[in-house]
C-alpha cells in the first residue's frame, strides 16, 4: 500500500521538513486553494520578468496538456513539476 508510494511520501516529508513551522501551521489551518488558478494568474508576470519567457501552467490531469516528457505525474501539492525546453 503506502509502501508502494514511498517515493512520493518521502518527497512530501522532505518538502515539509524544509518549511518553517509557521508556514506548516498556516497551511494546515487554511483550506486548500486552487493552485492552478493562482499560478495561472500570478506566474506569468514575474516569470517573464525573471526568466524572459512565457510560462504555461497545466493541471496534471488536464485534457489538452502539453507534456512531451511525461513530467506531469511528478507534480506534488505545493511542488509543481517543471519542464524547461
Amino acid at each position: 500500500m503506502l509502501k508502494k508510494m514511498p517515493d512520493y511520501i518521502q518527497k512530501v516529508i522532505k518538502d515539509l521538513h524544509s518549511e518553517s513551522e509557521e508556514i506548516k501551521a498556516i497551511k494546515l489551518e487554511s483550506k486548500e486553494f486552487d493552485e492552478k488558478q493562482f499560478l495561472s494568474a500570478e506566474l506569468a508576470s514575474i516569470g517573464k520578468k525573471e526568466f524572459g519567457v512565457e510560462i504555461q501552467v497545466f493541471g496534471a490531469t488536464d485534457k489538452d496538456i502539453y507534456d512531451p516528457k511525461g513530467k506531469a505525474r511528478h507534480a506534488r501539492p505545493f511542488k509543481p513539476a517543471i519542464l524547461i525546453e
Binding site: 508510494m5 512520493y8 511520501i9 512530501v12 516529508i13 515539509l16 521538513h17 513551522e21 506548516k24 501551521a25 497551511k27 494546515l28 486548500e32 493552485e35 492552478k36 499560478l39 506566474l43 516569470g47 526568466f51 524572459g52 519567457v53 512565457e54 510560462i55 504555461q56 501552467v57 497545466f58 493541471g59 496534471a60 490531469t61 488536464d62 496538456i65 502539453y66 507534456d67 513530467k71 506531469a72 511528478h74 507534480a75 506534488r76 501539492p77 505545493f78 511542488k79 509543481p80 513539476a81 517543471i82 519542464l83 524547461i84 525546453e85
Partner: peptide, 29 residues
C-alpha cells in the same frame, strides 16, 4: 539552459492532496 519555454504542471490528484494534508497534520509540531 537558456529557456525557450517553461511549462508548469500543478498537482490535480485528490488522493495525493489527501496524503499531503495527512502528512502535514502529522508533521506540524
Amino acid at each position: 539552459i537558456i529557456p525557450q519555454k517553461i511549462v508548469i504542471y500543478v498537482n490535480s490528484d485528490e488522493f495525493k492532496s489527501k496524503v499531503y494534508r495527512k502528512i502535514l497534520g502529522i508533521m506540524v509540531g
